[in-house]
Amino acid sequence: MKTVNYRLARGLRVLAFSAMAIGMVSSPALADGIKISPPYDAYENAALLMYKGEQRDRAELKALFRSTIGELDPVVTPWCAGFVDAMLIRSGKRPLGSLWALDFLKYGERVTQPRRGDIVVLSRGPVYGHVGFLHTIINVDGQTLVGVLGGNTEGRDHPGRVDIAYFPLSMVLGIRRG
Rank of each mutant, 00 (worst) to 15 (best):
K2I: 14
F167Y: 15
V76H: 06
Q113R: 14
A86H: 12
A19E: 08
G142A: 13
R115E: 09
G97V: 09
L102A: 04
R161V: 01
T3P: 02
I22F: 03
L49P: 03
P28H: 05
G97K: 03
A31E: 07
S18T: 11
Y128I: 06
L72G: 03
I175E: 01
L12K: 08
E44K: 05
G151F: 00
V120I: 11
V140A: 14
H130N: 09
L48V: 04
L145M: 15
Y40T: 06
K93D: 11
I89M: 06
Y166T: 09
G151T: 03
Y6R: 12
F167D: 05
A47I: 05
L30I: 15
E71A: 11
A63S: 11
R156E: 08
P126V: 12
R176N: 06
G174A: 12
N139F: 06
A19I: 02
L64Q: 03
V146T: 11
G147T: 04
I36E: 06
S91Y: 11
G132M: 06
S170F: 07
V162M: 05
L49K: 12
L149K: 02
F65Y: 14
V140K: 15
I69R: 00
L88C: 11
A16W: 01
P114G: 13
P114L: 15
Y51E: 05
V120Y: 01
E71I: 08
G178Y: 02
R13Y: 00
T144N: 12
M87K: 01
V162E: 02
F65T: 06
A9C: 07
Y166C: 02
Y128F: 11
V84M: 15
V120C: 09
T3N: 09
I36T: 06
D118A: 12
